[in-house]
Amino acid sequence: MHLTGLAPLVTFVAETEGTAGGDPVAGRTPILPLWGELIFGIIAFAILYWVVAKKVVPNLEKAYAARAAAIEGGMAQAEEAQAAADAAKAQYEAQLKDARTEASKIREDARVQGTQIVNEMRGQAQAEATRITDAAHRQIEAERSQAAASLRGEVGRLSTDLASKIVGESLHDEARQKGIVDRFLAELESGDLKPQKVES
């Protein structure tokens, strides 16, 4: 590329060395600069560079950064949403599991409590039954001893009466004094006394 540029250039260096137009710089070798153009070029570039560096590039970089951030941000946002959904699901599942556990616990508790109540009731009923039976027993015992006591008195009196009629006098006081009847009944109860024919 450059060679096609350089070849005619050499020719022109030779050709134009002697030419002189109206202005001596007009015929200057093309590879020697016009100083004004060189200086002007530097100044022109400096101005463009200043504009590009101060206004254009910062704006473009800002747009680039914002775009990269937006794309990245979008991805981050999606990830965040996904994470939130996952968390919600996990929480829901955990809650469900908790609820299940709780329900079964309640059921278990109820069962245990039920058994307990039944046992308690049974115990109470048993105790009540025992108590009633005991009371009945005691009452029967009391009545029986009362009956026995009164019977004993009655038997004593009857026998004394009978004896009095036979003897013809009242033996009541003496019998009472000596506890004969009682002794007799006691002997009768213990079996020491054998029924015998009354002699004479």
Partner: peptide, 8 residues
């Protein structure tokens, strides 16, 4: 114009 390439 070579002045400009030289400037750059």
């Amino acid at each position: 114009r070579i002045g400009f390439p030289i400037a750059l």
